[in-house]
């Protein structure tokens, strides 16, 4: 279980996360949605201890992320940020293999290899495995980073906009992959998503943020309603049920 207790986070005088208390039970996919500047990424960063909170605490399975040793937490929780640039020149396989670092401390054992190969094939990167990251397209690079995080093989996986730069086929493939990881392997997955309908189709839970606060949370049925979307995003959307999924239409 991930618990954020009264988390506040600010840059200078600007409060970006405002006294958020949130409990995410273990298992399933949670999507955080909300307009730009709602504090989604900052909240995710605080949970994954990349950003110190100004006040409040974050507990992962009861461990306070601010004081738990980094390597202990890294075997429990993995995270991926929005934009990933590397100064170093690595191949895809090199990068993915780093996912094993928390387990093997940089001395990969025979047991680590299958993890790496599996993660590469999950993301369909076999053909690019030995190419350098800077020779790949944006989408391929994004998949390589997701592969690294999956290779870390943690109970909790936090991804900030994992669908960035991906075409429809790969976006769907990744969401299905995450779904499988949650259902079959019991992982807890937390995503920041911009595409409302992706969130609706694949999440067990949606958390809506606005102006640094959590304004709504619940199953997709509870959030995917015209009144709720108006309150969260200030848009007029009609919601249709298609094949058992709720789809918001707001394009015109």
């Amino acid at each position: 279980m991930i618990e954020a207790l009264g988390v506040t986070c600010r840059y200078g005088a600007t409060v970006v996360v405002d006294d958020v208390t949130l409990r995410l039970p273990a298992g399933g996919i949670t999507s955080i949605i909300g307009p730009n500047g709602a504090g989604k990424s900052s909240l995710l960063s605080v949970i994954s201890r990349l950003l110190p909170a100004a006040s409040g605490r974050v507990l992962v399975d009861g461990m306070d992320v601010a004081v738990t040793p980094g390597d202990v937490l890294a075997r429990r929780l993995s995270s991926l940020r929005q934009d990933n640039h590397l100064p170093a020149r690595l191949t895809v396989r090199d990068l993915v293999a780093f996912g094993r670092y928390p387990h093997s401390k940089g001395r990969p054992t025979a047991a680590d290899r299958p993890h790496v190969e599996r993660a590469i094939s999950y993301l369909g990167l076999e053909a690019q495995a030995d190419r350098f990251l800077d020779e790949l397209s944006g989408g391929q690079r994004q998949r390589a980073f997701i592969a690294m995080v999956l290779c870390q093989d943690t109970d909790y996986v936090l991804l900030d906009e994992p669908l960035n730069n991906l075409d429809m086929r790969h976006a769907v493939a990744i969401m299905r992959l995450l779904r499988r990881a949650a259902t079959e392997l019991g992982k807890t997955i937390v995503l920041v998503l911009h595409d409302l309908n992706f969130a609706s189709c694949h999440s067990d839970r949606i958390v809506a943020m606005r102006e640094g606060r959590v304004v709504m949370q619940g199953p997709p049925e509870a959030i995917m309603r015209p009144e709720a979307l108006r309150e969260i995003f200030d848009i007029e959307a009609s919601v249709h049920e298609i094949g058992g999924d709720r789809i918001a239409v707001f394009y015109r």
């Binding site: 990349l50 980094g70 993995s78 991926l80 590397l86 870390q152």
Partner: peptide, 21 residues
Amino acid sequence: MRSWDVLALGRETAIGLGVAH
């Protein structure tokens, strides 16, 4: 030496992988 290899991936990734950045 080995944690420096991870450090080269950048602060966020390094912390995510459990290196005391």
